[in-house]
């Protein structure tokens, strides 16, 4: 133990004094990927990325009220665009860092049956993210409507405040199934999942913006650039997202 502590202190000393820090607002679905990227970012640049997670809507509301975030990784395009239009983000820097995939997940194996599981009589509670605040919730509604199941399942829907809470509803078994992001369950071996066919919902294009508060912060600019690097894109893909070729 003492040796580990010593090694840790040694690493601290080894860091250059100019290593900076940046605060990043991250949509809840990107939690694990962002954590992995922050680690890679630190290894590459020595800068620290401090991550705050929440539903895109909640983060957006905070940013419009002057929350001290440098970078905003939303789960949609609409909110970053609004932030940009409000003059809170560096104009022209917005780009799509990830394209999300919607999955149906259950603690038991039933979700693998896909739309048949949604039609089955045993379904009592279906968790989705609040569609007004989280794009994955919107995609879940799209899917149910495309399958002509929305009206019959409306009474069984429970909403999580974010996609993270939505997953937790199903993970604790309080909901039978949940529409979540592939990234949340990609590393799990338990439960069952069904990749929702892409023609059932609008593509979940997730945009990033460099906020004005981060413009003068070297670490923030570095993180924003790093997000487009091959290293970062490799991590993003590993968590079940697609990435767009850099413009």
């Amino acid at each position: 133990m003492r040796r580990i502590l010593f090694a840790f202190l040694l690493t601290l000393c080894a860091l250059p004094a100019r290593a900076g820090s940046t605060t990043v607002a991250v949509a809840a679905n990107f939690n694990e990927a962002a954590t992995a990227i922050a680690a890679a970012f630190k290894a590459a640049t020595r800068h620290e990325a401090v991550l705050s997670f929440g539903a895109s809507g909640a983060l957006h509301a905070q940013i419009t009220q002057g929350a001290p975030f440098d970078v905003f990784l939303s789960a949609d395009q609409e909110r970053p665009r609004q932030v940009e239009e409000a003059g809170l983000a560096v104009a022209g820097a917005r780009f799509t860092y990830a394209v999300g995939t919607l999955v149906l997940w259950s603690r038991d194996g039933r979700a693998t049956l896909g739309d048949a599981a949604l039609k089955a009589a045993g379904l009592r509670k279906l968790a989705i993210a609040n569609p007004a605040a989280a794009p994955y919730g919107e995609a879940a509604i799209d899917t149910l409507q495309a399958l002509n199941l929305y009206d019959s399942l409306k009474g069984k829907i429970v909403q999580g405040a974010s996609i993270a809470q939505t997953f937790q509803f199903a993970e604790t078994g309080n909901a039978d199934m949940a529409f979540v992001a592939l990234s949340q369950v990609i590393n799990r071996t338990d439960g069952g999942r069904w990749l929702v066919p892409e023609n059932l919902y609008k593509p979940i294009l997730q945009d990033a913006v460099l906020l004005r508060t981060g413009e003068g912060n070297e670490a923030a600019r570095a993180f924003f650039t790093f997000l487009r690097s091959d290293d970062a894109r490799f991590v993003i893909q590993r968590f079940g997202y697609e990435t767009k070729a850099p413009r």
Partner: peptide, 19 residues
């Protein structure tokens, strides 16, 4: 679970409106 008429009470509704 934010269900209107069942569990969506005032404090949660405010949170929702802000979001």
């Amino acid at each position: 679970g934010n269900i209107p008429g069942v569990t969506k009470v005032m404090s949660v509704a405010i949170f929702d409106f802000v979001e």
